[in-house]
């Protein structure tokens, strides 16, 4: 009897250890993914949501969706494809659920640090202006073009884009070409 109970205790302890090890490994993987892709996710959130407060909410939603989907990730695609697909899907859901904006849309990003903390402040300021103009032009694009432009700017291959958006590589090339033209027009329209 005591032998049976000690065996079941050992099995229970082993089960608990395996479960806690798996959850620890998952948390480590999540932390690593966030560390590697958080900048790209933030840029994506910026392009989907112009209002600063809601942008942070979208970032939180993307992180939550990643956390929930990570246990189901079976490595059928690259980790980057997985992250971008979830982030884009969450961005789409965000647009579908979006309420009309009551806050003013920020044309320039809020800064709590000086712009010239790096060398060549004039060049930095000029680049910041170009970045804001680019972001504004990207936001003005329809969602399917916006998705392609975002993926292109994040340096993803056509195959990865096709996997993320769910279209063929040939369609990616066509849509990307049109999206680039639309972006160029939007940028020219600003200047």
């Amino acid at each position: 009897m005591s032998h049976t109970s000690s065996t079941s205790d050992v099995l229970r302890n082993a089960g608990t250890t395996v479960a806690s090890d798996a959850s620890w490994a998952l948390e480590k993987q999540f932390d690593r993914i966030i560390a590697e892709h958080s900048r790209a996710i933030w840029r994506l959130a910026c392009s989907y949501e112009p209002v600063a407060g809601r942008r942070e909410e979208l970032m939180q939603d993307i992180a939550l969706a990643l956390w929930q989907a990570l246990p189901h990730f079976r490595g059928e695609c690259s980790e980057r494809t997985f992250v971008f697909r979830i982030a884009h899907n969450r961005g789409l859901s965000h647009i579908w659920k979006r309420k009309p904006a009551h806050e003013s849309i920020d044309k320039l990003p809020e800064r709590d640090h000086p712009i010239d903390e790096r060398p060549e402040p004039e060049e930095q300021a000029a680049q910041e202006c170009r970045r804001v103009a680019l972001m504004s032009a990207v936001r003005s694009l329809p969602v399917t073009y916006r998705q392609m432009i975002l993926l292109m700017l994040e340096d993803l291959s056509h195959a990865e884009m096709a996997e993320i958006v769910g279209i063929t590589e040939r369609n990616v090339a066509v849509r990307l070409n049109r999206a680039r033209k639309a972006l160029k027009e939007a940028l020219e329209g600003q200047s």
């Binding site: 966030i34 900048r39 933030w42 942070e56 970032m59 993307i62 992180a63 709590d112 970045r131």
Partner: peptide, 16 residues
């Protein structure tokens, strides 16, 4: 230009 943004990132684990 796209990669030049240096905005501080929020704490992404709050909602989780």
């Amino acid at each position: 230009d796209w990669h030049s943004e240096v905005e501080p990132l929020p704490d992404v684990k709050r909602k989780i």
